[in-house]
Nucleic acid binder design. Structure first.
Lengths: 165, 165
DNA sequence: GTCTATATATAGATAGAC
DNA sequence: GTCTATCTATATATAGAC
């Protein structure tokens, strides 16, 4: 498919990459780096609440801008399994979950985090929104994601910066 | 794969089904009927609010009880495309969306409906919840789904049964 | 870097024997 | 209903020429 799409033979493609896995990894690399950038920006925030908001905003932006790719990477069973086996991907996803979950490791934190991730990545390719303008989809998604977010703080965080205001 | 799994040759399988499509349809039939039952139960409710609640409860129960199947049917790009082409499936999904959206056809209704569907089906196979007990997952999912639900009534419904109470 | 040619495995399917 | 045998197309490569 790739060879046909770029108008060369398969042998030419296999001169640039040795295996199919290498091709998939290379194709996913750009996307992975974008996610990593969002996660790093979130990790740099001073409070967990801000980190979460930065992460959600960034992921919504990413998901809307690259609807098909994000959806595939997070939902396609073949790709999901591929990345579960190929090291480079999981650490980024783990850090992303870590930002959302904070110190929580219980049921509520896990399910809310899973749901938020699934909701963002799954919505952008849903038949009901495929025709929607990017800006509209982004703002609506953002608004809805914020409805799930508070559910993640069962104990409303009385940490280091609680003295303020 | 199927022939190997049940210990016969491919020819034996192709004696029972003429094409691959027939096999996929047969495998999905049971799942489609379960979804249809939930949608019918919801449609039978007297008010839209009740219909929505019945639908969400039913879909959460279904998704948790059949995590892998539901997730595949709604997220696997190959299967999704397959059903988009094969008639029998879409009407049920359309009715499901109809129950959730009510009379709304705007952006908000579309995105909330898409998000609710994606959230339920996507959460149940997320790495963070694969180990979770069915009962725990079900109750948490239910709780979170109810946070998205109210977002779908932008205008808080002053319809036929509004005189009551 | 790209080509032709070839190799191997697998999916999807059909023909005809038992 | 299940088997053996065969066919066609495709994915995943590798070898060696230009």
């Amino acid at each position: 498919m790739i060879a046909d799409a770029i108008g060369v033979t398969k042998a030419a493609v296999y001169h640039q990459y040795n295996t199919k896995d290498e091709i998939v990894l290379a194709a996913a690399q750009a996307e992975l780096e974008r996610v990593d950038a969002v996660v790093r920006a979130a990790e740099a925030e001073p409070t967990r609440a801000q980190a979460r908001r930065t992460l959600v905003t960034g992921m919504v932006d990413l998901a809307v801008a690259h609807r098909r790719t994000v959806s595939t990477v997070l939902n396609d069973p073949v790709i999901v399994r591929f990345f579960a086996e190929h090291e480079s991907f999981r650490p980024v996803m783990d850090r992303m979950s870590r930002v959302l979950m904070g110190d929580g490791t219980g049921h509520e934190a896990r399910v809310s985090t899973a749901m938020l991730t699934a909701a963002i990545s799954g919505t952008v390719m849903h038949p009901l929104v495929v025709g929607l303008d990017d800006d509209v989809l982004r703002s609506q998604l953002q608004r809805l994601a914020e409805r799930i977010l508070p559910a993640m703080n069962t104990k409303p965080k009385q940490s280091h910066s609680a003295t303020r205001s």
